[in-house]
Structure formats: structure tokens, C-alpha cells
Design a protein around this nucleic acid. Structure first.
Lengths: 216, 216, 216, 216
DNA sequence: TATGAATGAGGTTTCATTCAT
DNA sequence: AATGAATGAAACCTCATTCAT
């Protein structure tokens, strides 16, 4: 197959997946009709079926995309530059945190993330994909904390793996509350406060003092 | 209407709702057919329609039940007896924590909780119900922390509201990971460790010392 | 399940199969739409799907029915009474001959028989069903010829198995020609003449003489 | 139109028809997609539509080709050389017999022949084509038998028309059984035996004796 | 002339809901 | 009150056909 055609196909699939993500997020997977996705894209249903053999297949592609992302973009890099307490900032809360949000577009809105997670409990293959993504994110963050430990910022006895799990879980939990109307200003403040408490209590005294001096 | 009949109706509805919760949790709301629910209960589809005028209506009742629960059972009571760090135990992680699990049966399994939360993002009335439940739980836990503050266990400058939000979010997040196959032993350890760090760092020195002495 | 309901279901399935046979014969399997069958029966499409889970499934039931028939009605009985040359009569050609036509209603019209046979070449399970039916018919007719051999009507050296195959094939072939417009009067005459030649040439001289005397 | 171009077109159409016959035989007409035929040929769907305006049109061409053949190649020629009982040989069963197999390639495999015959029962124009082909074959064989009659090989009172019908029907019937898995060795033996009985019983004593002497 | 992406009419199938029993 | 057969709207999916390149 000529590369040009190949490329066209890949781009066509990507456009469909992007549209599907939007519609899935708006309506939920089961309430999203193939017609909705086709309309969102301005094509006919038939066109979608040239690229994906079923709705299920399209859904799998939607799941796959962040999975590919997670393999291409080591998370630790995102964190490398900053210092530990930067994590507590809104920038991190808004953009970087949460498993799917570790990665640049296209990715899943929170509502889709929750639906997919629910679905994973009945779909081993899907569960496996999410597990992989989670491990990737977790490993990245854990590594970052290990680096901080070596640099003397985090205390040696801290279990960095659990610390990473905790922070990601905290962020996922808070984001979920936004789905039923808790104001993001509110969840953001909770994030800032709690992550701050958490990170300060794993820092060495030296690092805490330095931080204190920074602030002055 | 004679009370006896009414009671019968109420009990019948409750049995249907219980069955529906089970089926919804097993298969997800949209994959659950009215037939499945009827079968689980050993009745016919027609019977369900005598008590609920639609699947949507039944779903609302499923959502409603924990909402009623939350109003009848002030959460703080559950916590009253114990001391602060008991929260970090598995008992709390397994049974008491997470919004839906604050309450006694019947309630929603985690997978259903995630699906409902996702759905809430598109359904204001559902969002409202979840919001109410969350507020109730949050208020309860916050009150508990305020009590602890008055007793000198928690430091006065701590924002107990955010502390409560953080702990609930942490628990919800960790429970979600179980849906895609993270071992509960793992999430449980993370819970114990992180909630412990968090609570210790909001305790007064006096309380921390007392705790220390307890352990000895 | 109560027997009455059970019976109802069985009868309902039979009514659908009967309608399907008619429509399949009129239009061919692939040109027959579920709507056509539903209309022929005066029910909605949904009803058919309560009894058959797919069009394929309905087709299998259509195939199955003559298969069951063939097991219930030993063919030899049909032949037992008459004498050998009765086979050459139109009665036999019209009603008794040809594999599917060995049996009483409901059964397949010739056009459906040809379509099913064609389909069998690509569908091993279907081929197996036809094979079974054919063997049953063949065995029955062969047994009849063996009886005639024992009675001294057919000569001992005749291969009754091949004779039976030949006669059934002859009849099937001739019936096929009716599908593209060869007059049944014509095929019937060919049947009478050729089957007569064939059977006379396998008869013993004694039997042939007796026959000759009969005619006088 | 320049003859060269026209020739090209004719050859292109023929290649498409050949591919279509193969695919139709493999999958059946309705299960054969235009894409399948294009793939078998290594061209695109669009190309087929440049030569045939619809699938129906292509099907008609498939039917037409043997029809043209039958007009170009008088069947009797095929038989002229041999003697009567050669007809009973496997060579005849395998290659020459049966309506579609009277003719050299490309022609229809048995499964397609059965499907077309079934279809003819609902399609008068198709029935007409088959009828023509059948008549042509029948006339050819009848003529051959008449020749044999004149030569004193076949007895004068024999209805050669019915004899021809019978032999072709026998062969068609037996070939049909191969479609559902009857071994060709088996049908071939039946053919040899039954056609032999049939032909011997229409032969004059003289011819039979000559035959007998031949064998010696 | 050849291509194959796009189309959309039309088919199969599902399932919440109704209603006669 | 309970049943479950029947319904039909609405979904998914197919594929012959078209047409811009």
C-alpha cells in the first residue's frame, strides 16, 4: 500500500477516534450512537465502518490511544524540572495529574475515565490496558520520588511507591467529585492543602527548611 | 391504602431494587436487561413494571436508597467511639469508607458507583443526589474532625473540611484501582500508610505522644 | 415450564418455520427478509426473534424438520405394499420420490432443496444433515429392493444400493428441470419410461413374465 | 470503436466473468461481494463497474457464457467418435456430462449450477436461458442416440428423447449428491452401473453381441 | 482507464414496554 | 397481582454503487 494512502487511513482513523472520544464523553458510551459520532464528524455511518468493524472495535481504539501515549512519553520527565512542592500547585492538579491526564491530547475526559474504569471491572482485556497505564504512571511518579530521596529531599524511610499511589488516588478521587458538581475551585484547594501536608511530612528537615527559606 | 398492603408494596420494591443493584453491578446499567433483573428475582418482567414505571424509574430508586440511608444514619456516630488513627485501619478502608460504603446494605458496589458518577456528569438530577450524599458524608466526617480538634487531638490550624475531602478522595481513588485489577492488599497498604502520614501530621504533639504511649 | 406453554411454544416455532419455508421457496433464502416472513405470518419481526435467535438459526430449524421426519417415518413402509413397477408411476414421481419428498409435510419445495444443496457445499454441518437424510432414504429404498430380491423379483446379481442411488438421482435430476420450465408432463413421462426400462432390466424373468400376465 | 479496444474490452469482461464464476462457486452468489470478485482478480471494485453496470448484470453475463458456448459447440461432436457404452465410463461422468459440464471452460461448478437452477424458478429470463441450454444439450444427445438407432445399435422402439433426458438427469442427480459429501468414487460407480444397465437394455441384440465380442 | 473512499438505503437484531390472560 | 408473548422503535451493520482523483 502506498505510504500516502496508509497515512490517510491512519489520519482518518484518528479523526474518528477523536470524534468518538468527544461523543462518548458527552453522552457516555452506551448512549452514544454511531450516528452521533458520524454527525459529529460530518460523515456517514458507513465511513466509520470502513475503519472500525464495530462499535466495540472503535471503543477499543479509543482506549488504545492513551495507552500508546503512555509508552511514548515517560512521565518522570514531566516532573524532572520542578521541585517537590510544585506538585501541590493547581497546574499539576489541572493538567498533569490523574492517570489519563498525565498525557497530552487526545485523551479521556474524566467522565469517560470513570465509565471506562467501571467497564474494566467486567472486561479483563480493558482492565489489563488500564492496569498497564496505571503502572506506567505510577512507576514514573515513584521514580521521581526516588530521585528526590537520593537528592535528600524525601526522607529515606518513606515508601515512595505508596506515596505515589496515594497522590494519584487523591487526585482521581477529587476529580471524580467534579462530575457531580463539586466546584473545581473547591477540589483544587483540597488538593493543594492535602498534597502539601502529605509532601511536607515526607520531606527531610533540611529540604523543609530550604523550602521555608525560599518562601521568605 | 391499608398499611399492610402498603408495606407489602414497599418490601416488594425494595426486593426489586436489591436485585437491580446486583445486576447493575454485575453487568453495568446499560448491559442489564429488564429480563436479567426479573430472572435474578425469580419474577416476570411484568411484575417489575407494576412497581416501577420504567427502567429509568428503577434506576432512580437504586440511586435513591443510599440517599435515604444517608439521611437516617448520621455518619459521625460511626466514628464517635474510635480514636483518630483507627481510621487508618483496614476495617475502615474495607467497610466504612467511600461515600457509598459509609452506609449499611443495600448499597452500591464500586463499579456501579463509578458508572453512576460518570452518568452524573450528564444528569443534573443524579448529580444533585450524589452531591447531597457526598455533602452528608463530608459534613459527618468534618464534624468528627472538629470534635477531635476540640479534644486537642487535631491541631487548631488544620482545615478539617479539606482534610475530610482528601481522605474520602484518597479512599475512592484507591478503590477505583481495584476495578482494573490492582490487588486490594496493595491498595489497603497504601491506604494505611498514606492516611497514617496524613493524620499524624495534623495531630497535636500531645496527641501524637499519647498515641506513642498507647502503643508501648 | 407448564406443558401448555411448552406446547404453545412448540406450535409457535412450527408456524414460523412453515411460513419461513414458504417464503424461502418463493424468494430464496437470501432474498427472504425477516420482514417477509413476519408479514406472511401476520406478526412482528420481534416475535420471530423470540423463537429463533437469528435468521441463520431459523434456517437451521427449516433444515431440521425434514431431518426429524426422516427418522420417524421408515421409508420402506411406503413401498412395502406395492409391486416393483409401481415405482414407475406418476404417483411415486409426484409425491414419494426425491429425498425431501419422501416425507409428508412440512417439507421443502424443489427450489429450496436445490438452494440448500448448493449451500451444503460450503456448510459442513448442513452437508451432514443432508447426508443423513439421503442415507436414510437410500437405505430404505435399498432394503425394499433387497426384499424384492429375496422374493425373487429382482435378480440376485443386481447391486441394489446403486440401483437405489440411480433411481433417486434420476428423480432429483428430472425434478430440477421443472425449475427452469420443463413441463412436469414431460419429466413425468421420462420418469415413467426410464424407471420402467431400468426396473424391468433388473427383474428376474419369472417376475417379468408374471408382470406380463398381470397386464393381460 | 477500434477493433483493438473492443477486443480489450471483451477480454477484460471475460476475465471478470471468470473471476466471478470462481467466487460465486466458492461462496454462493449472495455471499459473494463485489469486493471479493475484485480481489480475486487483483483489481478495484470500480473497474468491474466499468464493464458491468451492476452485480445483477455481471451475474447475467456469468449465465450467458455457457449459453454462448452451447451454441458454438454442437454436443453431438463430442460423442461422435465413441461407441454407446463409452458413455458409462468415468471420463464421461467426470467431464462431459451434466448440462454445464457439456462445455469446455469456463463453466459452472456444480454448486453454482444448483444455485442458478434454484434461482431460475423465480426468474423467468434465467429460466429461459437454462431451458435453452438444456434443450441444446438434450437435442445433441438425442441426435446421437438417433444416429445409433440408424446404425442399428439402439432398438427402434426406444424413445431416444426420454433416454437422453434420463441419462442427463441421472448424472445431474448424482453430481448433486457430491455437494453434501457423497464420495465421487461412490457416485461414479453408481453412474457406471446404472447407465450401463440402461444403455444395454436399449441396445439391439446384435450390438450387444458385438460389444460382447469386442470385450473378448 | 483505474481507483477506493464515501455513501445511504435497507437489512438484521435488540429490548423496553404493553396488555390480554 | 402476576405473567410472558407480542410489539415496534431504534439501534447496529452491510455492501452495491458512485464519483472525485
Amino acid at each position: 500500500m502506498p505510504r500516502v494512502l496508509q497515512d490517510y487511513k491512519i489520519r482518518a482513523k484518528k479523526r474518528i477516534v477523536d470524534a468518538a472520544i468527544k461523543v462518548f464523553a458527552e453522552k457516555g458510551f452506551h448512549q452514544s450512537k454511531m450516528t452521533d459520532i458520524a454527525k459529529k464528524l460530518g460523515v456517514s455511518k458507513g465511513t466509520i465502518y470502513q475503519y472500525f468493524k464495530s462499535k466495540e472495535d472503535l471503543f477499543k481504539a479509543v482506549v488504545q490511544i492513551p495507552l500508546e501515549k503512555v509508552r511514548e512519553e515517560p512521565i518522570a520527565e514531566l516532573l524532572e524540572s520542578g521541585n517537590l512542592l510544585d506538585i501541590t500547585s493547581n497546574t499539576f492538579y489541572d493538567k498533569l495529574w490523574s492517570m489519563p491526564l498525565f498525557f497530552s491530547e487526545p485523551t479521556w475526559p474524566t467522565s469517560l475515565m470513570f465509565e471506562i474504569t467501571s467497564e474494566a471491572s467486567r472486561n479483563p482485556s480493558l482492565a489489563n490496558s488500564l492496569h498497564t497505564m496505571y503502572d506506567e504512571a505510577l512507576t514514573g511518579l515513584t521514580k521521581y520520588f526516588e530521585d528526590q530521596k537520593e537528592k535528600g529531599v524525601i526522607r529515606p524511610e518513606v515508601n515512595t511507591h505508596h506515596l505515589a499511589m496515594g497522590l494519584i488516588a487523591l487526585q482521581d478521587g477529587l476529580q471524580g467529585y467534579e462530575l457531580f458538581g463539586i466546584d473545581q475551585a473547591e477540589t483544587g484547594k483540597a488538593w493543594a492543602e492535602i498534597s502539601n501536608i502529605l509532601l511536607r511530612s515526607v520531606m527531610t528537615n533540611k529540604a523543609a527548611d530550604a523550602k521555608y527559606n525560599d518562601k521568605r
